[in-house]
Structure formats: C-alpha cells, structure tokens
Amino acid sequence: MTDAIHHFIEQYGLLAVFLGCVAEGESAAILGGFFAHQHVFVLWHAIVASALGAFIGDTFFFILGRSFADNRHVVGLRRRPGFRRAYRLLNTHPDIFVLSNRYIYGMRLVGGIAAGLSTVPAPRFVILNAISSVIWAVLFSTIGYVFGLGAERFIGQALLRHERLLVGLGIGLTVAILAWLIARQIARHERAKES
C-alpha cells in the first residue's frame, strides 16, 4: 500500500503542487518543498510547479475580473469579504498590491478579481505577477524543504521512506486545516467590519 502511495506521489505530486498553487497554494508549495527534501522530486521542479500554478491562478482571476465583470460568478466573488479592502488598496498602491497580494491569506482570489476590475494595464500586471509568483514559490518551497530537514532531525533517521511520505501528507493536511481556520477567522472579521 505505501509503495503505491509513494509511486502515486512520484507520478502526480508535481501536478498536485501545481493545481494546489493555482487555487490558493501555500500548503501545496510547502508540501512540494517537503517532498523535494524527501527526494520524491527535485526542489527546483517543486519551485517551478509552484510558481507556474501561482502565476496562472492569479492571471486567471485577473482575466475573470477584466473580461467577465458582469458574470454572476464574478459578481458573487466581488461580494466576498475583503473585496472592498483589496480594491481600495489596489487603487492607492497598485504595484505594491500586485506584488504582495498573494502573501495575504484569503485575499488572493478577490485580489486577482480586483486587479482585473482596476485600471492596472494587463502587461504591467503580468510582469509584476510573474515576479511575485517566483519569489513566493522560492520562499514557500524552501520553507517546506527546510521544514523537511527539521522534521527529519525531530522525527529521527529511523523512519522508512513510506513513513516519511505519510508524515509529509499529515503535515500538509495540518497546514491546510490551519490555513482554512485562519481564512475563516479573517472572513468573519471582515464581515463584522463591513456590517
């Protein structure tokens, strides 16, 4: 069973990192770095998958905001907590917002839509988004890689390869749950401020 899990992660792990980074991403990028430390795949592959996923995700949301502003799904996203704040920040400091939006948990989706609705030129957004995506991917994948070093020392050298993979999956799940709880708390706080 654990060999099947290991084989599955080897075959589809980078794809999962890429898709996870398209959606939100921090936990996927960290997990990619952790698995790179476990020699499941190479660290720079995890960084490239994370950067591409982050870049494509934000560009997709930018295009949604720019080209489909009246679509009911985009209108629904504009009603999400934090959208007004993101739009206000974007209009006051557009370059800084595009470069830093992905670091504010829960703002990435609404930030991409807000950027698409703003007057930020598309080429400028693409360049800033690419720079931000690469820096973000290097940072979070490296955190996962370094955490892998710490986890190996903490857990000990005695763990077998399949046990390390299961520990990695557990760490990824824990990070995802913590991120979800934090995002939920931020959303509640934003709703309370908007009321």
Rank of each mutant, 00 (worst) to 15 (best):
T142C: 08
L15Q: 02
P123D: 04
P81F: 11
Q185L: 12
R102Y: 05
L160Y: 07
I143C: 05
F61V: 12
I9M: 15
E10I: 11
R84D: 14
G76R: 12
G25Q: 05
I56V: 15
R78S: 13
P94L: 02
S132L: 06
L178T: 13
T119E: 15
G116E: 07
R188M: 01
G20D: 01
N129P: 10
F55W: 14
R102N: 10
G82P: 01
R84S: 15
G32S: 09
H93W: 10
G76V: 09
T119K: 13
R84K: 14
S195D: 12
V98E: 06
L15D: 00
D70W: 04
R88D: 09
L89C: 05
I47Q: 04
R164M: 06
A51N: 03
A29H: 02
V98K: 12
F60H: 08
A137P: 00
R80Y: 02
V98Q: 08
L117N: 09
F68P: 07
I177D: 04
R79N: 10
G172W: 08
S132E: 00
G32N: 00
S27G: 12
G106N: 10
V146I: 14
A176R: 05
I182T: 12
H73E: 09
V138T: 07
F125S: 09
A151H: 00
M1D: 03
I127F: 10
G82D: 01
N101H: 03
A187L: 00
G32V: 04
F8L: 11
I47E: 01
G57Y: 00
S27H: 06
L90M: 15
Y105P: 00
F83T: 07
I155Y: 09
G53S: 06
V42C: 02
L52W: 02
V134R: 07
A192F: 05
R191G: 09
M1N: 05
G172F: 08
Q185P: 00
M1Y: 14
G112K: 12
G150E: 03
S118K: 09
E10H: 14
L173W: 04
R124D: 01
G170W: 10
A4F: 13
I155C: 11
V120E: 02
G20R: 02
G53V: 08
R164E: 04
W44A: 02
L19D: 00
S100R: 03
R66S: 14
G25K: 06
F8D: 10
F83M: 07
A51Q: 05
N129D: 14
R85A: 04
L89D: 11
F97C: 08
V126K: 06
R84Q: 14
R84A: 13
I5R: 10
V175D: 01
